[in-house]
Design a protein around this nucleic acid. Structure first.
Length: 115
RNA sequence: GAAGUCGAACAGGUGAUCGCUCGCGGCCGCAAGGUCGCGGGAGGAAAGUCCGGGCUCCAAAGGGCGUGGUGCUGGAUAACGUCCUGUCAGGGUAACCUGAAGGAAAGUGCCACAGAAAACAAACCGCCGCGUCGGACGUCGAAAGGCGUCGGGUGCGGUAAGGGUGAAACGGUGCGGUAAGAGCGCACCGGGGCGUCGGAGACGAGGCUCGCACGGUAAACCCCACCUGGAGCAAGAUGAGGGGUCGCUUCGUCGAAAGGCGAGGCGCGGGUGACCCGCCCGAAUCCCCGGAGUCGCUUGAGGGGCGCGGCAACGCGUCUCCCAGAGGAAUGAUCAUCGCCGCGCAAGGGCAACUGCGCGCGGGACAGAACCCGGCUUAUGGUCGUGCUUCGACA
RNA sequence: UGGGGCGUCGCCAAAUGGUAAGGCCGUGGACUCUGGAUCCACCAUCUGGGGGUUCGAAUCCCUCCGCCCCAG
């Protein structure tokens, strides 16, 4: 597998998975995002993204998702393995650049590791 | 140079690195998939979903009655509420812009408040004439009373100029006319009717004629003309799998009978929609339901060049190109560099207004395909045009 | 993505095209030693925004904005 690839197999796509992770899983609240996560039995790290239509219009939502994917793609090895994650946007408009997103996600992922 | 107006195209470019997705090909894998190479990968509005069409299903989309829509002319188009062209009306010095712009003489409704009166006209105040009642003053008379003037009440008649309300008052202004007035008469303006000429037509020009008859409202009902069946790609197809097999009756036929088979009638249910008629189906290679799978899914009223026709919208011919197909939903991230815009400093030029090499900082809008097209509407930073108009200066 | 519906005072809500009812809340006053209750008075100038039709628009028409519901 590519070193920094992000194939579809590493994404959470099914509505049932989202419901499980956000319902049964635990949550960590950052300033601008919430990270929900739940253990999976795959030995892999998967991620899904949620951003409400009320918070941003379509291009802004797309940008938020792309930044999340980009950060995940580059820093995946730093995320605890064996979990499914859902990144939930709280203030998508407050994250303007790649660097903003990387700092924000690093903050919440570090606290996953602490538990 | 300033202000304005119209129109068109574009929607930053290039490179590197790391990624996503689709197609084709190679390799690995039982398969799911992985990997390598090549090629493609958001918009002018992809948006709002306000119209129109294609496509799909509803048996066909038939008749009636509705419902909804459109509404100056002629044209364009697959179609439209769109576009073009012309007309009229309104705005602007102009370029140019704006207009749901048929019918109020088929009928119905409504026109609050105010006002005499709000729609077949009528007549409250007023004005005028005649009659009548009594009063004041003048005058004549001895008196009774007569005559005249003024103002008042009242009856009959004439009148619609004046009054003042209102968004709107049954043509307007002026002169004549009259007891007072009045299209009663005349002039001009407005309006109605009928020919003529021009135009394909909306309409325009001009003539004759009628003293004038028709308040407004149809984005009120309505009338006229034209259009209009319903749903929507979550359509629909496929489909692992699941479920279902109308009632009464007549006739024919087979049978000993029970019953089977065939044809029909009535009912019931369903297709089926605003409603009615009509039509179809009720059973075994049939009907109903049915996954996030697969198909539908991108070659199309398609883009570009050239030529021809047309004022134009657009059409015709020819050559050429293939140009997104995702599905918790791709089309991205970072860096470099060039270009653009704004601000600050500022070499140089110029009498000055000003211009501005270069350097630094900042900015780069609105917005994301979801079956596909044609429009409309709304959002939006900037660039462009020997475009057009008006004004100013100079020659 | 497609299909429907609704916006009137801080809240709940009425209004044939003719002065934007009413209730709750609030504010002021009366009554009371004080409070409550009661009574009286006040409370929409932009009827979600902008245009249009009409003498006149919350109402009719056009166009934007916001919210809600349905189909998964």
């Amino acid at each position: 597998m590519k070193k920094f690839g992000f194939p579809k197999a590493l994404r959470v796509t099914r509505t049932g998975d989202f419901a499980r992770i956000q319902g049964r899983g635990r949550r960590i609240h950052g300033r601008r995002v919430t990270l929900a996560f739940d253990r999976n039995r795959r030995g892999e790290t998967r991620v899904g993204i949620t951003v409400s239509a009320k918070q941003a219009n379509s291009p802004e939502r797309n940008r938020f998702k792309r930044l999340v994917r980009e950060v995940f793609r580059r820093t995946r090895r730093a995320w605890p393995v064996g979990f499914d994650y859902v990144v939930i946007a709280k203030e998508p408009k407050a994250i303007r650049s790649y660097d903003d997103m990387e700092i924000e996600l690093a903050g919440v992922v570090r606290r996953v590791d602490a538990r």
